[in-house]
Write a protein that binds this DNA or RNA. Structure first.
Lengths: 331, 331
DNA sequence: TTGAAAGCGCTAACAC
DNA sequence: GTGTTAGCGCTTTCAA
């Protein structure tokens, strides 16, 4: 910046003003400064700016799996909110590894981001590696944490929606394919479905446990289900997420079972590949972009509250999912 | 840090040394410093560190679509390389918007990242918004740019692979579904396929132009193809990418055409959803993680060269794709 | 082995 | 409107 000032024949303070408070500097001087900047190809040093200013205009977001379309949509929502307000967004991918999540959180703190949005790994919202007393943290896809604002989706309601949809189409022997006891989300979805099924006489919900929530688990479950005697086999499957549902579709197709003719499928998440499947998959849609945007808004509120020295009360926002009926449950 | 020093009863310089050159400070003092840090919950200020040090230990990566599994795998490759070496990675998503790409590039430069990896938007590798004379830039998924190192895949070869595979399975009326004239990649894939088809008498490659490279385009192409008289209709389609291929499968399934019985499909990219389709899709696999890792390695080499004051000669790395045959071309 | 102090590039308060 | 200058938190000589 010294060089710019020298070339423009002004003081460094004037260069700074030309950038940060243009109205305080004469148009002519401003132009000379601009010209000097252009000629020298000077780029402001954000570290110095931040050091002096005491804080950045950036927030961080750390997700547990950037390869999952669900999270990329959440990120997009966050970005939309932030870029509209001139905030930078630092994206991190913990890739399901707790040590990496800690590392990323720690680095964001070292960079003095104003706050972070976290889609945490694991059941508990334990946010080791960051001191929430210092940096505000909003949890996404997780609900009712005493120490943070949260944005989540009502998974019990979503599970109920899915099961009801199947019941409405006359299904009585229903399976739930997913992993229980590991993620609150999956447990809630199952619980909602169980509630719906309990309300209908003669209907039953059977759990097909999977080792994970991925496509492969779905394929395996389909193979297992297809091997059951037809009069015992569920006529519909509710998958804990769309990846499982996609796997189920492939497994059933391979096994020669028609979807939805022989067996119906409904998934959860409504990722774009669900609609794109050979037999478009019914699913429970979560407002992902909105989740991201709301999380960013909550975070920004918390940041402003702290700044103003006001007491901040953590809030949990529970968004409602909705049913998207497609051909896989159309029979 | 002053507080830490005060609490530990040492000078700030000693605290700094305890962190950055532990061997230069007495074990006992070191422990006292550690204790003070823990008690105060102090977190180092990266801005100050950088400002003083003159440079960061971070690189940036900007991709044109973070929702595309292709790029998330590239990112994963970059992260693997960098985290192993203690480098931070700043991920940015230009979301196909040139202004956003410029903005992200500019911000990375303001943050004084050591270099950036860019999966650029658009045909030309025009990297406005960043001064490559200052910050090294490696282009990914793009080839032979005079001003940058590049890592790409041999798309002509990939196109040839795909077409040969179809020809080997007896197909003679082949369609290419994609958008030509917009992306070098798609044009190359078509060119490779055309070369292969030219080599076989009685075979023909017909282009089905799509408005974009997404699922919807694939569905529409399938509808159009399915409407052709069977003896005129191609018996196989080579899709410019897997999204189109996935759309094709859905379109054909809906139209009552069997894949691969009535019509075969081969895609490009080998994203995980290709293997997961109801009829697993053959595809051309690109070493995505490797691309990311190689790009990071090239970038790091360039950074070191500059640092050492050596002349750096840009290199282009062209990786070879390979065929993954699955059921969609199995007939 | 530790302490003292200069200075990285910038902003903002103040003086002119 | 513009110039001068202190100081943000850290690293890194240099001296003790």
């Amino acid at each position: 910046m010294r060089d710019v000032a020298a070339l423009a024949g002004v003081a460094v303070g004037t260069v700074s003003n030309a950038l940060n408070a243009p109205q305080r500097v004469a148009p002519q001087t401003r132009r000379r400064v601009q010209a000097a900047i252009a000629e020298l190809g000077w780029v402001r040093n954000e570290s110095a700016r931040q050091l002096r200013a005491g804080s950045s205009m950036a927030i961080g977001i750390v997700v547990m799996d950037i390869g999952n379309p669900f999270f990329t949509d959440v990120i997009a929502g966050v970005e939309e909110f932030c870029y509209d307000r001139g905030l930078s967004v630092h994206v991190g991918n913990s890739d399901q590894r707790p040590d990496r999540q800690d590392m990323l959180l720690r680095r964001l703190e070292e960079q003095r981001v104003r706050g972070v949005i976290l889609a945490p790994i694991g059941q508990r919202g334990d946010v080791a590696g960051i001191a929430p007393r210092t940096t505000p943290v909003v949890l996404v896809d997780r609900v009712h944490d005493p120490n943070h604002c949260c944005v989540g989706v009502d998974d019990v309601s979503g599970g109920r929606l899915a099961a009801r949809h199947l019941l409405d189409h006359g299904h009585r022997r229903i399976a739930f394919a997913g992993k229980l006891g590991a993620f609150a989300q999956a447990d809630d979805r199952w619980r909602g479905a169980a509630q719906a099924v309990e309300g209908v006489a003669g209907s039953a919900l059977r759990v097909v446990e999977t080792p994970a929530h991925n496509i492969e688990s779905g394929v395996d479950s389909a193979v297992w289900l297809a091997a059951l005697p037809p009069d015992e086999r569920p006529t519909a499957v509710f998958a804990a997420n769309d990846l499982i549902a996609i796997g189920l579709l492939q497994g059933f197709t391979t096994a020669g079972l028609a979807v939805p003719g022989d067996i119906a499928i409904i998934g959860y998440d409504d990722i774009s590949f669900a609609a794109a499947a050979a037999v478009p998959l019914s699913s429970i849609h979560q407002p992902r972009g909105q989740m991201g945007a709301e999380a960013a808004a909550l975070l920004w509120k918390e940041i402003e509250d702290r700044q103003a020295g006001e007491r901040h009360a953590h809030r949990t926002l529970v968004l409602q999912p909705h049913l998207v009926a497609r051909r896989s449950t159309a029979a």
